[in-house]
Simulated scan of single mutants.
Amino acid sequence: MAEVQQSVQALSVSGAVPPEFVRLEHDQPGGATFQDTGLEEAPVIDMSKPDCGSRMVEAAMEWGSFQVVNHGVPAAAVAELQSVGRAFFALPQEEKDRYAADPASGRIEGYGVGTRAPRRNLAGKKMWADYFYHYVAPLAIVNHDIWPNNPAGYREANEEYCRHMQRLTREMFEHLSTGLGLEKGAMSEAFGGDELVLLQKINSYPPCPQPDVVLGVGSHTDMCTLTILLPNDVSGLQVFKDGRWHDVKYIPGALVVLIADQIEILSNGRYKAGMHRAMVNKEKTRMSWPVFVEPPRELVVGPHQLLATDDNPAKYKAKKYKDYQYCKINLLPQ
């Protein structure tokens, strides 16, 4: 079993905020430089409307993020996923620790805590969050041994939700492909088709005594193709546009979509990866269930051949996804 460290949930109960969690002044959510003016909001797209594709394309170009409603994911599947996730984080600490991630294994899967040493690209500060990662697709890479046996129904809830995420991903890829002037199946094919990888994460952001100086997760773009995020009813996600941060308001039943690095690369910069960060709350636990949609690790991703021309040369290097991950995590040039 991996080495176990104190959870952020335990820190929350103690009422302490150790200095390694306190952000530098320019990066503090309470700082004037980062205050959201509230003048704009990330688009909310109704997927039952005929114009949903064009609105999605516009949002991907201008914001790198949007919310979707009437997306076809049953409310019961959402409720069950959230129920088993909350139940897992409510377990005694020693039971959660049985699933602790082992960094020495080179795998991301398992239970983790924000008190662990931060990655280099998080400005040396720790994140006010505990979390759980595991792959849900394709079946060949899924390790059910790392999935919790308790609560009952955890596996069934995650497998059901995964099926809806696969269908929703295909639909969004089709809209985004045609928005680039490509065949509707081009984006899915470029990212691996049936071998597309879905990585499920649960984020738990416990109450924080000093939410104005701490972040659940610092500002970043995701490495994958796109992220589909299910929030609970405690707001905290912010997206960056035009030099300022904007709150992503909670809309019951909505899913947040974040365009990520590989779509920006494939589109040769026409779509932009959405910079975002996670705030914390003084009184309530915020939770989210992001699904990271990734290419297979050995797949080479670069600007699509029809989008990199003599008049518009490639802005990004083509490389294996695993090499892109390594460079980004270790702050190496791409």
Rank of each mutant, 00 (worst) to 15 (best):
Gly253Lys: 13
Ser177Arg: 01
Leu176Phe: 01
Lys125Trp: 00
Pro290Ser: 06
Val291Ser: 14
Thr33Tyr: 03
Glu156Cys: 05
Ala75Trp: 03
Ser177Leu: 07
Pro29Met: 09
Cys327Lys: 10
Ala32Glu: 14
Pro252Ile: 03
Leu176Lys: 11
Met56Leu: 14
Val57Phe: 01
Gln82Trp: 08
Tyr154Cys: 12
His220Cys: 05
Ser188Glu: 15
Lys96Leu: 11
Gly185Lys: 03
Lys322His: 00
Tyr161Leu: 06
Tyr154Phe: 15
Asn121Asp: 14
Ser219Asn: 06
Ser12Cys: 03
Gly218Glu: 11
Pro303Ser: 14
Leu229His: 12
Leu229Thr: 00
Ser188Asp: 13
Arg270Gly: 04
Val8Asn: 10
Phe66Thr: 04
Val84Arg: 10
Leu229Trp: 09
Tyr316Pro: 08
Glu294Asp: 13
Ile108Ser: 08
Val257His: 12
Leu332Gln: 08
Gly302Ser: 04
Ile329Phe: 12
Val84Trp: 02
Ala117Gln: 05
Ala260Phe: 02
Thr225Trp: 00
Ile263Lys: 10
Met275Cys: 08
Gln200His: 03
His304Met: 12
Ala76Leu: 10
Phe132Leu: 09
Leu81Asn: 11
Asp194Cys: 09
Glu40Leu: 14
Ser54Ile: 02
Tyr205Trp: 13
Ala308Tyr: 02
Tyr135Ile: 00
Ser267Lys: 05
Cys224Ser: 15
Cys162Met: 09
Gln325Ala: 00
Phe191Ser: 10
Pro333Gln: 04
Gln28Val: 01
Ile259Ala: 14
Asn232Phe: 09
Phe240Met: 05
Gly112Tyr: 07
Ile259Pro: 03
Ile146Val: 09
Ala76Lys: 15
Asn70Ile: 04
Gly218Phe: 01
Ile329Glu: 06
Pro138Asp: 09
Trp128Ala: 01
Tyr324Gly: 00
Pro29Phe: 06
Val257Lys: 13
Asp97Met: 07
Asp242Ser: 15
Asp102Cys: 13
Glu298Pro: 00
His220Leu: 00
Gln325Glu: 03
Gly110Pro: 01
Pro50His: 14
Pro148Thr: 03
Ala87Asn: 02
Val217Phe: 08
Val197Gly: 01
Gly38Cys: 05
Ser288Arg: 12
Pro118Gly: 09
Tyr111Trp: 01
Ala273Glu: 06
Leu180Thr: 09
Leu196Asp: 04
Gln5Phe: 15
Met187Val: 15
His246Thr: 00
Arg120Val: 07
Ser235His: 11
Phe191Thr: 13
Cys224Val: 05
Glu156Phe: 03
Val300Gln: 03
Gly269Phe: 08
Ala100Glu: 12
Pro148Ala: 04
Gly124Leu: 05
Asn70Tyr: 07
Asp261Leu: 08
Glu160Ala: 14
Leu299Ile: 00
Glu94Phe: 10
Arg167Lys: 12
Ala76Cys: 07
Val73Gly: 12
Arg23Gln: 12
Val78Phe: 11
Leu255Glu: 09
Pro207Phe: 13
His134Phe: 11
Thr178Ile: 01
Ala79Cys: 11
Ala117Phe: 05
Gly274Ser: 10
Tyr326Ile: 00
Gly31Glu: 03
Gly193Gln: 11
Asp97Gly: 01
Leu11Arg: 05
Glu58Arg: 06
Val57Trp: 07
